[in-house]
Design a protein around this nucleic acid. Structure first.
Lengths: 254, 254
DNA sequence: TCATCCAAGTTGTATATACAGGCTAGACCA
DNA sequence: TGGTCTAGCCTGTATATACAACTTGGATGA
């Protein structure tokens, strides 16, 4: 059952566990190679490989002569990173707030049941929230959650913690699909987002997997005039250095 | 000047060169670790590291007992991969066609000059194309190209080869920024895309860098009802196995 | 002829060792 | 006091060696 893990992988898991449990905070010092050699009875090359791969994967940063340190989560991947809307707003220096419109148990209808791989009519949690930045609504989050995945979903205070943050806490997600499209939203969403007539809406549909099954599905509606998705891409094998001067492309939209 | 490269990096460059020059085609066999040991006078561990990193970066695939093989480019990254619209259409089994609306040299106005890092009024190429899938317009490509980057831009027949494919041939791009937003397009674009009133438009603004400078900037307009961007995400350190059953999320849009 | 087995080549991992170079705290000296 | 220097720790790389597991083709035998 338990596939024999390579020792470098055990070491990686050991460090990742310390990071994701919060025992090691960003910029904290990670055990050095030699410390791992003593503590875990491995050779230095094995410890080196573990730490080197964690570096490639963005978990830690290494400085020759000083040591290895937990990297700041925010600096990881800017590309389609599935960060919560709250972090996104905070990163811009804005003030995030959210309002819960609906938080209920309901029967999964056709499309939702299909997306979550449950029988028609099964119980799923339904969350509907409006997120705002400095008071202006910026996202309507229409989310369905597998009830068996997060049984405490109805008791959560989602004014305080975003569903995304809560769900990530229940279990780390492993895979996500995302579809982005533009549409003209219906009047309910239009009203929630305080949108003008003739304004378009950027819709992100996101389904998240954990432990091999889909656990949550969300439609995220954003007002076209106040929201955009940014991405940054480098082909495999090239350095990840961002261009020194990144012009704000937003100014270029017509 | 020439920073002393690590030997594993020299090996990687050596293999990458063989791949990008076409000497090694997808699914071709790459020299084994032991062959590299002999040919390049390195230790097997060094050859192993080079090939292992090329695996992580998607260049090659390795099978214990068989060997190392150049991986098929198309299987690399499905996430925000900057594939050309023609490939995208072809992958769906559709028939791609395009019509050149404008192909001219013109003076860079404010925003364009800023995006391409050139003086106001400098000459840049301007391309305007309409791409169609099975006869239905699916993208308006409004592109500006640094004239010094691709001097032959006006002579190209862009009905035959897409600007994206042509430019990639001139020099491989190295970095790209991309901003996605929803908007209601102006009437000209509306007409080109044969869009209904009240239909939204997904706009991708993409700036591509080569050799440290921006070389082309494009606005790609897509009709909201006929186009979507898909993405797939796995956090660092987890396997890249796609969920076995990927429901078409498109059906879920409202 | 057909099935089986095995040797050789390949990748995957692990270890011990070595040297180079970066960084820092504390010793040392003027 | 203030500057300099160095010992010690750290990462980065490179090598030689070893064993395990997988794959394939050819030898072997029924």
């Amino acid at each position: 059952m338990t596939a024999a893990k390579p020792r470098y992988q055990e070491l990686k898991d050991y460090i990742i566990e310390k990071i994701s449990s919060g025992e090691l905070q960003p910029s904290d010092r990670v055990p050095s190679e030699n410390e791992l050699v003593e503590a875990k009875s491995v050779s230095r090359m094995t410890a080196n490989r573990a730490l080197r791969e964690l570096t490639d994967e963005g978990y830690v940063e290494r400085v020759a002569g000083r040591g290895t340190f937990v990297s700041d989560y925010r600096s990881r991947s800017d590309l389609l990173e599935l960060k919560s809307i709250a972090d996104e707003v905070a990163a811009r220096g804005g003030r995030h707030s959210s309002r819960v419109v609906r938080q209920s148990l309901q029967h999964a209808r056709g499309e939702i049941a299909k997306a979550l791989h449950v029988e028609q009519g099964s119980d799923v949690f339904h969350l509907l929230l409006v997120h705002s930045e400095d008071g202006a609504p910026i996202q309507v989050e229409d989310r369905y959650v597998l009830s068996s995945f997060a049984p405490g979903c109805l008791e959560q205070d989602f004014d305080r913690i975003t569903p995304s943050a809560y769900l990530t806490g229940v279990a780390p997600f492993q895979e996500a699909e995302q579809v982005v499209r533009a549409s003209i939203p219906n009047s309910a969403i239009r009203r929630q987002l305080e949108m003008n007539d003739g304004e378009a809406c950027l819709v992100v549909m996101r389904r998240t997997w954990s432990d091999g099954r889909p656990v949550t599905f969300a439609r995220l509606h954003h007002p076209g005039s106040r929201y955009e998705l940014t991405g940054y891409y480098t082909p495999p094998g090239t350095s990840r250095t961002a261009p020194a001067d990144v012009v704000q492309l937003e100014n270029l939209s017509q």
